[in-house]
Design a protein around this nucleic acid. Structure first.
Lengths: 138, 138
DNA sequence: CAGAATCCGTGATGATACTG
DNA sequence: CAGTATCATCACGGATTCTG
């Protein structure tokens, strides 16, 4: 338990914007959420669905979500251990806000990418005399 | 190799959930957003409002937002440089989703904190026979 | 199967100093 | 005022090994 997901900048974030992200913004959290949205799943299930996640990070993410009361962990005392994860009622309330972000991305992510490309093509606006359109040849 | 603020797990996040966070989830991004929501501000203004941010991080955050097309940077050629930052129309569209998260936190953050405390008081559920209510006296 | 423990690289972040 | 540049740290996250 050496790894804590959230470093201790402050005991509690003063801003509600930050508090929300504090709960959600981990790399794998959203993906776990996305999977559990569809229903409860086993540990190995999650590992298969969430490509690229290591056991360590998956466990760590799930533990944090459990600690925050967003996910409930159920252990069945079978001979090979069986552990089931599901969203709690509290966790379910987060689905709506996350869907909002989801829809925003669907609607505007192209614009973001476009803006990034445009930005990356402008070398360095040291002298803003006249806009030079000859950025790159065709 | 050529990585900016976001680690290159993949060229572009396949999941819209993650894409949204890719844009928003930086530590200072939300705070900058929170300030610019009220109107355009100068660099030094932002530095004063956002406590604890260094010039480096503020610049880095603003540059990223500018690159993503969410913030517009305006330089006035005064003798002491004056730089103004404001949300773009695209940036404004992000306010709504972020408000959702904001409200979620206002409504449920107490539950999260409560859950954390409860979780931290349970030492180690090695044997889950019966729920022991005598965790620790007050 | 579902983790725990360990080692370790990398990169984000913070502090400081310099610039135009 | 509004940055840039450089350095140091340290937690995040990955890979591996061990366990019940």
């Amino acid at each position: 338990m050496s790894d804590q997901l959230h470093p201790g900048y402050e005991p509690e974030s003063p801003c509600h914007y930050r508090r929300a992200l504090e709960v959600v913004s981990s790399k794998w959290t959203v993906l776990v959420f996305y999977e559990l949205e569809k229903g409860s799943k086993r540990y190995s299930e999650l590992r298969k669905q969430i490509e690229g996640v290591t056991k360590k990070m998956l466990t760590q993410t799930l533990r944090q979500l459990e600690r925050d009361g967003l996910v409930r962990r159920t252990v069945y005392p079978t001979v090979p251990p069986t552990v089931d994860y599901a969203l709690t009622p509290l966790g379910l309330t987060l689905i709506e806000p996350m869907r909002m972000l989801h829809r925003w991305t669907e609607a505007h992510y192209d614009s973001v990418l476009q803006s990034r490309r445009a930005y990356d093509n402008e070398p360095a606006p040291e002298d803003a005399a006249e806009p030079d359109l000859a950025a790159e040849p065709d």
